[in-house]
Computed example of a mutant assay.
Amino acid sequence: MSLHGWIIYNGHLPATKFLDFAEWLQLSASNKNITTQIIKNNELLSVLSSDSLDIVQEIIIDLPDFVIFTDKDIYLAKQLELLGVRVFNSAQSIAVSDDKIATYQILAQHRLPIPKTIISPKIFSNLNQIDIGFSDKIVKILGFPMIIKEAYGSFGEQVYIVKTVDEMTKKVRELAGKPFIFQEFIDSSYGKDIRLHVVGNQVVASMLRTASNDFRANVSAGGTMEPYFPSSFERETAIAATKAIGADFAGVDLLFGPNQTPIICEINSNAHIRNMYDCTNINVADYIIDYITDWFEHK
């Protein structure tokens, strides 16, 4: 089977790790005799009119058989889908993954294990006074310490721990105008979690992340990593979470709940893979390419 794909990443981001992810995918595709082009999202313009929609590019080339979308430009992903291109992951799954509130709502709908979560009522940023009387109810439900987490954020950023009413009130005022949640603090998982890479119906690699001086375990925030062998329940939970948001593949972060029961922390539809390879010597890109090949063989 002769396939040609695009691997799209964000051309506005200066960090090399975004291109690095795309290059790993391209190499794995080449090893399977699949041709791909790495394209920046800002090299493709979505054009709409009353009688058509199109993709405009600097060099005119035919649309691909598939796109691996490593970016969060969901409008571009949707444009490609409307043009009939199979996008891995879909625009909808990327949008849900990128919005932590939407993620938790869907996980709760599927009765999957998550921390107890309260969505902050919408607050407009231009208000001189903010009525935070609702915070009393939140404290009664969640207690202290608690997590405040912005709906949008990556690499463990935009996640805060608050320990008093004053700290909570200050953070609520700071975040006015942004969507965010209040969340139960899982103290049994302080400074540690597991990242599982799911591709299709299997967990292909996993690692334990540990931080010595932070409640967050992200490697990008200074945490350390080591290979981890998940239990069947942990694997099933990660796969179910990935399917719940409609993703073909994802990095699923699990916390250690009471009695070591897994609790879903986050799902990343664009999870980078170099750290996982450095930790486990497993190349997740190979599994992603195999999954795409299998999809076309059985569609």
Rank of each mutant, 00 (worst) to 15 (best):
N126F: 14
L127C: 07
A247C: 03
E297D: 11
D51H: 12
D20V: 02
F69G: 03
H4T: 15
I38C: 09
G222D: 07
R111T: 12
T70E: 00
D136I: 04
K32W: 08
L13F: 13
A217Y: 07
I138R: 04
H4F: 15
G177L: 11
H4S: 14
S93K: 08
I289P: 01
I263Y: 04
M146Q: 06
A77Y: 03
H197D: 12
L44T: 08
I273S: 05
H12A: 15
I138E: 01
Q183E: 05
F66C: 02
K178W: 03
S50Q: 14
I288H: 01
M168G: 03
N89C: 06
D290S: 10
S50L: 14
I59M: 07
Q183S: 05
A176P: 01
E150P: 01
Q109P: 00
F180E: 00
R235W: 02
S49C: 07
L3N: 09
L13Y: 10
A22E: 07
Y152N: 13
G222A: 10
L13P: 00
F182L: 07
P121M: 03
Q57F: 06
I186T: 02
F66Y: 04
W295I: 04
L63F: 11
G246Q: 01
G223D: 05
I94H: 03
A15C: 09
M1H: 11
T164I: 13
F124K: 14
D99H: 14
D99G: 11
P64K: 10
D166C: 01
A217K: 10
T293V: 13
H272F: 12
S28T: 06
N270C: 14
G133Y: 08
N126T: 12
T35L: 12
R235C: 13
T280S: 10
G133Q: 06
Q202M: 00
L112D: 04
P113R: 02
M146F: 02
F185T: 01
F155D: 11
R235L: 01
L112T: 02
L25Q: 06
H110C: 06
I55W: 05
S50I: 13
W295E: 09
D20C: 04
A22L: 02
S93N: 10
Q158M: 11
V198A: 04
K163D: 11
L63Q: 06
L255T: 00
I130W: 06
L48M: 14
L48I: 15
F180A: 00
D286T: 12
I123V: 13
L107C: 01
T36N: 03
N33H: 14
Q129G: 08
K178H: 11
T103V: 07
E174A: 08
R173Y: 09
L63C: 06
R274Q: 14
C279D: 00
T169F: 05
N89L: 08
P230C: 08
I263D: 05
I61L: 09
D20L: 05
